[in-house]
Amino acid sequence: MSVVFAGDPVIPNFGQGSACERNNGWFCTDWLHAHWGDTLQPALVQHIELSLIAIGIGLAIASALALVGFRYRLLDAPIGVLADFLYTIPSLALFQLLVPFTGLTVTTVEIALVSYTLLILYRNMIAGLDAVPADTLEAARGTGLTRVQTFTRVELPLALPTIIAGLRIATVSTVSIATVAAFVIPQGLGRPIFIALDQNIFKTEILASGLLVIALALFADALLVLGQRLLTPWTRVA
């Protein structure tokens, strides 16, 4: 398979491995002990890095777009269509379509990952801002809040639960899609999966890496839920 890069260590080494490894057992704990440090842990750290960068940049771009789309409603539909367009391109295809421009680089991966966050982040930002009740806005205006004050003190806080809901989906999806990055660069938790697929479908490595990705996604999700509870205490009453 073309996705294995030169210089990769050959894991598992069936010749020297334990009986479990030689028989390609379901979950060889001795392999995990031996290769956590040289395989799984670095892949996990890379995976977190790839995801964090994509979410950070996606958040910044989506926020800027949402400010524009919310202020100038005419632009909302075109921005939404563009984000929708990017979202529809299959991830593996998007990676490959970027290669002629940016090569087999982290940049290629990040551009694609960021593209997938935009739709959900942008849509939720606009939806959250739009959902602020008319009477609340009227009370704010009648009270003498300026346009900016109304935005920062009323609309934004009230939109926060919806925005964070979008951030949760975007984060989990990004962690998930970052696995596919291994088609382009030898990084992330997709990497050990590819290697294992190439090595007679070595089950332990596939299961361990896959479970790590899922655990990472759920952990990130739980962190965001916690963050939302702290930031929006009013959503938990009555």
Binding site: D135, E138, A139, V154, P157, W234
Partner: peptide
């Protein structure tokens, strides 16, 4: 409709 700020 009162229009109280639900987040405060």
């Amino acid at each position: 409709q009162v229009g109280l700020f639900p987040h405060m």
